[in-house]
Design a protein around this nucleic acid. Structure first.
Length: 574
DNA sequence: GCCGTTTTCGGCCCGACTGTTTTCAGTCG
C-alpha cells in the first residue's frame, strides 16, 4: 500500500470518528497523520521497514501500530469495525456546504440518510426542516449546496486555472477606487498544485461598497455568505471565492491569516501565546486587551521574533522552527532560471517552428535553450527517427548562426525509455546530442520492480543527462507510476542525472514531496516547462512553485546555472 | 491521539457568518 492509500484510510477514519462524535482532538490527530503521510517525500513502506514510523510528525504509538497492521496485512481491523458502526458513505455528505459531521450524523440517525441522493430527496420532500434546530432556510441552503456540488466537477482545480481566474478578479478589484490594495492569498499564494477555492484579501476602509461592486462582476453567480469583513461567492466555473476586506492598517495580519495554511497559523498563534499575545486576522491583542496592528505581513513575523516566512513554506513542515533558528532556506526564484532545457517544436508534436520557439525563448529572457523533441517510438507525437534528428541538428546550427551569441541553442532529445528499459536510439546517436532527457510515456502500469528497473537502467546510461517527468502522473487523471523513488533518487544522485520538475500544470512531476527528498539526497534538479507552444513558457512559475514548496534553492537547479557551467556539466558526461 | 523551553498529564488557535435561537451550535477557513 502506498502513501496515498494509507493517507486516504486515515482521512476516512477521521471523518467517521467525527461523525460518530469522538473527541475532536482524536479526530484532528488522525487528520494530521493523514496529511503528513500524504506529503511525505519517502515511501511510508520504506520508513516502516526501517522502523521509523514514530519519527513522522503526528504519528505516535497508536497510529504507527495501525500503519504497521495495514502494511503487514493490507487490512485494518479498527477501520473495518468503524465502518460497521458508521456507514462510510456518510463521508460524501461532508462535501456538501453547510453539512458537517454533526448534521451528517443527525440526518443518518434521525432520517436514515446515508447518501447524497437520499439527502437531496429528503430536502426536496421537506424532511430536513422538521429536525430540531433546522428550518426552511437551512433546507434551502443545503439544496443550493447540492446543486453547486454538481456544477463543479472536482473539489480542487489545477493551479493554472485558479491563477488565471484570480488574475481576472484581482485586475477588476484593483480598478475600484475604494480598493487600496488587493492580493490573492490561500493555497494559491502558497502555490499548492491544486486549489480548492480562491481567497482574495483587500485593503479598504469601505467594505460594504467594495462587496457590492464585487457582486457585480460577471464572474460571480451566487452569494454563499456575506458579512462585514468577508463575502463568499460561487463563480461561473463552479470555483468558490472568498473576499476579505480589512482596513489598510490591518492588512498585514489579514493577509497572513488568509494565506494559511491553517496548521501554520495554529503554530504562529501558539507562539504568540508564549509572548502573552493573542493573534487573529485583526491583529495582536495583549493580555490587557490593548492591540498591536500590522499593516505589513512581515511585521506579524517580526513581532513573533521571526524572519518573514515565504508563503510556499507555510505548511507546518518545520518552517517555524527553522525560522526561529534562523535557518530558512534560500528559495529558487523565477529570475534564477536563466535557461530552459525541455522544449518541443513542430518537428515532433510542438505547435511552433524551431525559429519561433527560439525567438520566444529569447524574448522570455532565456540565455540558453535546449530543443528536445520526441524520439521515433512515440509515434503519436511524430517522434523523430535517426535521420530526422540528424537533419534537425543542421537546422539548429543554421538558426544559431542567424541569432548570433544572444542565445545558446542546445540540440537534445526527449528519448523514449522503451518498455524493456532500452532507449529509443543507439548510444552512438545519443553521443552526438548535447542533452538527452529520458522519459517514460508508455507501459506506465508495469509492476514496481519492472518499471523501477527500467528507469534505473536509463539513469545509469552514461548518455542520459536528465529524466523528464519521473513518475508520469497527470493530476486528477493518471496515478504516478509505481516506482521505488528512494532507489531512483539514490541512483540519480550517484550519477548526477538531473531530475526534471515539469512545470506543466497537470504534471508538476517531480511532485514537491519527491523534490524535497531529492535535494536532501543530493540530486540535481531542473525546472522545465516542456513547452509545446511559446505561451507554455509562462508555466514556468508553477514549476518554481513546486521547487519552492520543496525548500529548493538555486544551487541544485541546473538551469539556474550560467551557460558555461551547464555546458561543462554536459560535456563531462557521455 | 499526540506531545513537551511551563508539562509524561493536561493541554492542544481564533474568529466570521448563518440560522434558529433568546444565548448558541454548527460550519468554515
Amino acid at each position: 500500500m502506498n502513501n496515498r492509500g494509507v493517507a486516504n484510510i486515515f482521512q476516512n477514519i477521521a471523518d467517521l470518528l467525527e461523525i460518530k462524535g469522538e473527541p475532536i482532538y482524536r479526530v484532528l490527530a488522525y487528520r494530521r497523520a493523514s496529511e503528513t503521510v500524504r506529503s511525505l517525500g519517502q515511501s511510508v513502506e520504506d520508513v516502516w521497514r526501517e522502523g521509523g514510523l514514530e519519527e513522522i510528525p503526528g504519528v505516535g504509538k497508536a497510529i504507527s501500530s495501525k500503519i504497521d497492521e495495514l502494511l503487514r496485512t493490507g487490512r485494518l481491523e479498527f477501520y473495518e469495525k468503524l465502518t460497521t458502526e458508521v456507514p462510510p458513505s456518510l463521508i460524501d455528505l461532508l462535501r456538501v456546504g453547510d453539512v458537517g459531521p454533526k448534521k451528517a450524523a443527525r440526518f443518518w440517525k434521525e432520517l436514515g440518510i446515508t447518501s447524497l441522493d437520499e439527502l437531496e430527496a429528503a430536502a426536496k420532500a421537506g424532511k430536513l426542516r422538521e429536525l430540531r434546530g433546522m428550518g426552511k432556510r437551512s433546507e434551502a441552503r443545503i439544496l443550493e449546496s447540492l446543486e453547486a456540488l454538481k456544477r463543479r466537477q472536482t473539489d480542487r482545480v489545477l493551479i493554472n486555472h485558479a491563477w488565471e481566474t484570480a488574475q481576472g478578479l484581482l485586475a477588476s478589484l484593483q480598478e475600484l477606487p475604494v480598493v487600496v490594495k488587493v492580493e490573492a492569498a490561500g493555497s494559491l499564494r502558497r502555490w499548492r498544485e491544486t486549489v480548492g477555492d480562491l481567497d482574495l484579501i483587500a485593503a479598504s476602509e469601505d467594505a460594504g461598497p467594495l462587496m457590492d461592486a464585487f457582486l457585480e462582476f460577471p464572474q460571480v453567480i451566487r452569494i454563499i455568505a456575506r458579512g462585514e469583513t468577508k463575502i463568499s461567492v460561487e463563480l461561473y466555473d463552479g470555483l468558490r471565492a472568498q473576499l476579505w476586506v480589512h482596513p489598510p492598517s490591518r492588512f498585514g495580519t489579514a493577509l497572513q491569516y488568509a494565506t494559511g495554511s491553517q496548521a501554520h497559523n495554529v503554530r504562529l498563534r501558539e507562539l504568540a501565546k508564549r509572548f502573552g499575545l493573542s493573534l487573529s486576522e485583526h491583529g495582536f491583542k495583549r493580555e490587557d486587551d490593548s492591540e498591536i496592528t500590522c499593516a505589513e505581513e512581515a511585521e506579524v513575523y517580526q513581532i513573533l521574533g521571526l524572519p518573514w516566512i515565504p508563503p510556499e513554506l507555510r505548511e507546518d513542515r518545520g518552517e517555524v522552527q527553522a525560522a526561529m533558528e534562523n535557518r530558512l532556506p534560500q528559495l529558487l526564484t523565477q529570475s534564477d532560471l536563466v535557461g530552459e532545457l525541455h522544449v518541443h517544436t513542430d518537428w515532433s508534436d510542438g505547435a511552433s517552428t524551431l525559429k519561433e520557439m527560439v525567438e520566444a525563448a529569447q524574448e522570455f529572457g532565456f540565455q540558453y535553450l535546449a530543443i528536445t523533441d520526441h524520439s521515433q517510438s512515440l509515434a503519436v507525437a511524430r517522434g523523430l527517427d535517426v535521420d530526422r534528428i540528424r537533419q534537425q541538428r543542421m537546422a539548429i546550427n543554421e538558426i544559431q548562426r542567424s541569432m548570433g551569441d544572444d542565445i545558446h541553442i542546445l540540440h537534445g532529445v526527449e528519448i523514449e525509455i522503451l518498455a524493456d528499459g532500452r532507449l529509443d536510439y543507439p548510444d552512438e546517436i545519443l553521443a552526438e546530442l548535447d542533452l538527452v532527457i529520458a522519459s517514460l510515456h508508455t507501459a506506465l502500469r508495469q509492476p514496481r520492480e519492472t518499471i523501477t528497473a527500467r528507469l534505473l537502467k536509463a539513469i545509469r546510461n552514461p548518455h542520459v543527462d536528465m529524466i523528464g517527468h519521473p513518475t508520469g502522473r497527470l493530476i486528477g487523471i493518471r496515478e504516478p507510476a509505481d516506482l521505488d523513488m528512494e532507489s531512483i533518487l539514490e541512483a540519480a544522485a550517484e550519477h548526477q542525472v538531473a531530475l526534471g520538475i515539469n512545470a506543466f500544470p497537470e504534471r508538476l512531476d517531480l511532485s514537491e514531496g519527491h523534490a524535497r527528498r531529492a535535494v536532501e539526497m543530493g540530486c540535481l534538479l531542473a525546472v522545465n516547462t516542456d513547452a509545446h507552444h511559446p505561451e507554455h513558457f509562462t508555466f514556468q512559475k508553477y514549476g518554481v512553485g513546486v521547487a519552492r514548496r520543496a525548500w529548493v534553492g538555486p544551487g541544485s537547479v541546473v538551469n539556474s546555472w550560467p551557460f558555461d557551467r551547464v555546458y561543462e556539466w554536459l560535456s563531462t558526461r557521455g
